[in-house]
Design a protein around this nucleic acid. Structure first.
Lengths: 189, 189
DNA sequence: CCCAATGGCTAATGGCAATAGCTAGACGAT
DNA sequence: ATCGTCTAGCTATTGCCATTAGCCATTGGG
């Protein structure tokens, strides 16, 4: 019985890889175990069953996305920051299309780690929008709009809903432009 | 052996109901059969296994959504049509949150019925945007933007991502306003 | 009234997640 | 070096689910 030298992180990372490699068929513990050169029950020494594995993948994804967003917006403000955020968000989703849907799932109310990971990503957005002098409900509405545009585009793109041959880069650039313009004149009525 | 009087449509409709009733645990043929007062294998006389059931639910959802959108935009033009479309889209998603994700899945290339159902919904959007005199890539970019804003907001809302107490109706209204304004001046650079 | 079509059933198979309990290897303390 | 403990693997087992094969009763058209 040679030891495989697994760990919780190693198992989760491998699972995320498998998820990206064939996104169609849902991830199975049996497949994951085989891919790690181990029998299925052995995985339970590192993860808490299938739900625990899914949670691990989700947490990993949320943290990674939040870090990418934070990284991308360092030293930028206003329009530049919004564009950098939008670009980094889309780049992450395109690089991890199978994990992306997990990143928008609302955290469970009693899961502190999940709450923290979700909040980290939201904080980046709030910080970016802080340059627009929006307060109260205006800031919240603007945040919701920004998330809607970016998530909406990226989600439809990675789901394969944009099938026409027209260039996606240009379409996204125009969408981001429209969003930036809207944010500029957000306070009004 | 009294007959249960099932049909393909009845089975699919019941499955959609169950899906909405408890969206968490994924739909099982065993549960569906029990809910219909029938043994599991009997379902195979009406649907083509679990994949066939899922496809049936998806088709039903896409057609229903497309019909709702078409219905809502009758007799409207430009801003009014866009607002009506946005309102109807969100209303449908809120009424059928568990089925909504199925409606954005890209159709399989060889599934004619799926292609048709998806195209029906897209046609409504194209028709609504026809009032804006957009042509070529401009029209496609605008369509993508419109879908991104509406789907993005609705998707995040039904996923529970908008947790703050601020009124969602107002937030959506502002987002739709911003989108309408952007569409007004879509052609430019 | 008959008979073909069909919608229900039971039985059986195989895959998967999950649990219980065993065992060997790693590692620290003496 | 040796012992003892801890733990990461394992096998065996259970139970649920989807799926298929094959049987039988009901239905409805000639």
């Amino acid at each position: 019985m040679p030891r495989a030298g697994l760990s919780s992180d190693a198992v989760i990372e491998r699972a995320a890889q498998l998820l990206e490699e064939h996104p169609d068929d849902d991830l199975t513990l049996a497949e994951l175990a085989q891919s790690l050169g181990v029998r299925t029950p052995s995985l339970y020494k590192h993860i808490d069953g299938l739900p625990g594995l899914r949670r691990g993948i989700m947490l990993r994804a949320k943290r990674d996305l939040a870090a990418a967003l934070a990284q991308a917006t360092i030293g930028c403000a206003r329009h530049d920051a919004v564009r950098a955020l939008a670009a980094a968000y889309r780049a992450w989703a395109r690089a991890n299309p199978a994990q992306y849907p997990a990143t928008i799932r609302a955290p469970e109310p009693d899961d502190a780690a999940d709450q923290a990971a979700s909040a980290a990503a939201l904080d980046v957005i709030f910080t970016v929008l802080a340059g627009y002098d929006l307060t109260g409900d205006d800031a919240i509405d603007a945040t919701r709009f920004l998330r809607a545009v970016i998530h909406g585009f990226v989600s439809l793109e990675t789901a394969g809903a944009y099938k026409l041959p027209t260039d996606l880069e240009t379409s996204y650039a125009k969408a981001v432009d429209a969003m930036v313009t809207a944010l500029d004149t957000w306070r009004r009525p």
